[in-house]
């Protein structure tokens, strides 16, 4: 569905630092623009340059953004490791950004420190896209997750959405849950006690009236769940290796679990997966984790074109 001109204009020149900065309508405008790119692509960013500053490696995000920029006719410069930048000589982030803004039209930033993208955006006149700042935000991951939910369920409201695994440390889950609070859905939060979602998030869900259920038991989820979002449980979160083994297997999703949950759920995962999702589910029609990767490029095309004010019209 084409974006109307006023939505597109409101996003031109903006930064994409945190999903918190956007209204429900603006979030939908990103998704609508992405949807249009499913059917239409042309070199609308020809002659434009994306400065890609990766102060820590993230190959997938880097490749996905580069693919989106180049497929729209733009080009990319930058670095994929801070060791090759002047930061290694002690230059401040603000100064690095002020220098790089002279070489490009938009800045993409990945940084291990939380808040780095916000700080960078305050140091430049160019739009800044946050490609991940520590464990804080990764807004294009959130947008691509939202886009995948809408694509697979044909709705963003009235859904039963279950999050399973590490709900305490997962940046992906936190951002998506916050963003989903713009829409009316029922959430199921399934995790071991030690990896429960932090109380501040529950406070926010209570404040905006989101209906949610918290449980340790996988099968407490309502049978007719629409979306199952699984995340990796990292071994280093557990002081006891035996405890980790128990938990790891308790939250593993295979064909049997899908059947028990009604057999129609869209199955999502931010990847990389370890053994959270059985390989034998890869041909299950609801398996959406590789679609998320493809949608990542589509959504990033939309983000780049909207922030650069180069719409398809």
């Amino acid at each position: 569905m084409p974006v109307n001109a006023s939505d597109a204009l409101s996003l031109a020149g903006r930064d994409l630092i945190s999903v918190r900065d956007f209204t429900r309508d603006e979030l939908i405008a990103f998704l609508d623009e992405a949807e249009a790119f499913e059917y239409y692509t042309s070199p609308i960013l020809s002659g434009m340059v994306m400065g890609s500053l990766f102060f820590e490696p993230s190959t997938r995000t880097n490749l996905s953004f580069s693919s989106a920029m180049q497929r729209l006719g733009g080009s990319v410069l930058g670095f994929a490791d801070s060791k090759v930048s002047s930061t290694s000589k002690g230059e401040s982030l603000a100064d690095t950004v002020r220098v790089v803004e002279n070489y490009c039209d938009i800045i993409l930033l990945r940084h291990p420190f939380e808040g780095a993208a916000r700080l960078a955006s305050e140091s430049t006149r160019l739009p800044v896209i946050n490609a991940g700042d520590g464990t804080n935000q990764h807004p294009t991951q959130t947008l691509l997750d939202l886009y995948t939910i809408r694509q697979k369920r044909n709705a963003l409201e009235g859904l039963k959405i279950a999050f399973i695994g590490d709900l305490k440390y997962s940046r992906t889950v936190h951002s998506l849950i916050e963003t989903l609070s713009h829409f009316d859905n029922e959430l199921f939060l399934i995790s071991p006690t030690s990896l429960r979602i932090p109380p501040d998030f529950l406070e926010e869900l209570n404040a905006n009236g989101t209906v949610y259920h918290e449980d340790e038991d996988f099968f407490s989820i309502a049978q007719d769940v629409d979306v199952l979002y699984s995340t990796r449980i990292q071994q280093e979160r557990f002081p006891d290796a035996v405890e980790y083994e128990k938990v790891k297997n308790a939250y593993r999703i295979d064909r049997e679990t899908i059947e028990k949950l009604g057999g129609k759920a869209t199955l999502m995962h931010p990847l990389p997966r370890l053994n959270e999702i059985s390989m034998d589910l890869d041909d299950y029609p609801g398996a959406a984790y590789f679609d998320q990767v493809r949608n990542g490029v589509t959504v990033r095309k939309a983000v780049l074109s909207l922030l650069l004010g180069k719409t398809r019209v």
Binding site: G115, R118, D133, D200
Partner: peptide
């Protein structure tokens, strides 16, 4: 070198949010 900024989210049971790391 960075000046800190906090957004006042709630005053009744005080909650602040770091403008940078959120």
């Amino acid at each position: 070198r960075v000046r800190t900024k906090f957004i006042v989210v709630r005053t009744d049971s005080l909650r602040l949010r770091c403008h940078y790391c959120e």
